[in-house]
Design a protein around this nucleic acid. Structure first.
Lengths: 138, 138
DNA sequence: TTAGTTGCAAAGGCTTTGCACGCGC
DNA sequence: GCGCGTGCAAAGCCTTTGCAACTAA
């Protein structure tokens, strides 16, 4: 399903060939590419596309709330197009691969007021860590 | 309390003046400094200390499991010495400040087997996001 | 037409590395 | 004394920026 392109068009996102290719590359489930990987895949279809353009497009998609930025570890950020389906991440500590997992039915416990330090809390993010089957086989 | 120094000594961590200062700077609650901040504070006491040495020491403390690396956003990593007290983080989306918060009594829901994709899951990490009192006042 | 987008190349922030010197054990 | 730790400076990776040319609406 290519909801992403559709939604972007509906929201009046100025469409260019570069932006279209970026959105197409990101579309799908369990997609968590780095900016560089997005650039590489986009360049297969549009060889002249520049890294700066990819970063621009990614930054806008994040601002629009269509894509989520995932800081899996200390390396490059990954971009997750699954912004409209609430989910959590399962990250392999070995190779860094990311899978989407879905809330376990029990809603995320709210942070009690006495633990908020006066913050306005808007979001809770859960990350599971472990080893993927192939890294576990070491 | 300065458990950290004590524990490191017990574990046979080779002690030097630089490493001692790094450990001292990190010691305490709600401490979440960037490598650069650690370097700045260490340099107040030991002006010649180099950034590379601070990075080396931090890397080892993380490997030893005495300090946790926190990737708050896209900026510099922060280092949290509170590794022996399980806790979660509350991060300000405005200024990046981090506070420790403690498990809400209800244990972290386990990830059901059918959501594990064959991973060996060892850890679940929760991060709350929002605005701190001072950033909320914009 | 015209404001917004692109590509290039250069700069920037954070972190790591290579190597000679120095110091804890 | 041996081996690990340190400092320096340079390189590295990821990302952002400035600006002239271009293009979608």
């Amino acid at each position: 399903m290519s909801d992403l392109l559709e939604r972007l068009r509906e929201r009046g996102w100025r469409m260019t060939s570069q932006r279209r290719v970026v959105a197409e590359v990101l579309d799908g489930d369990h997609v968590h590419l780095t900016a560089d990987e997005v650039h590489a895949r986009a360049a297969q279809r549009l060889p002249e596309i520049s890294r700066a353009t990819v970063y621009n497009a990614l930054g806008e998609l994040v601002s629009l709330g269509e894509v989520i930025e995932v800081a899996t570890d200390g390396r490059a950020k990954r971009y997750d197009p699954n912004a409209h389906h609430p989910h959590q991440h399962l990250v392999c500590s070995g190779c860094g691969i990311v899978r989407d997992v879905h809330p376990t039915g029990s809603a995320l416990a709210d942070l009690p007021a006495e633990e908020r330090f006066g913050f306005t809390v808007t979001e809770a993010e859960v990350t599971y860590r472990g080893l993927c089957p192939s890294c576990a086989r070491t």
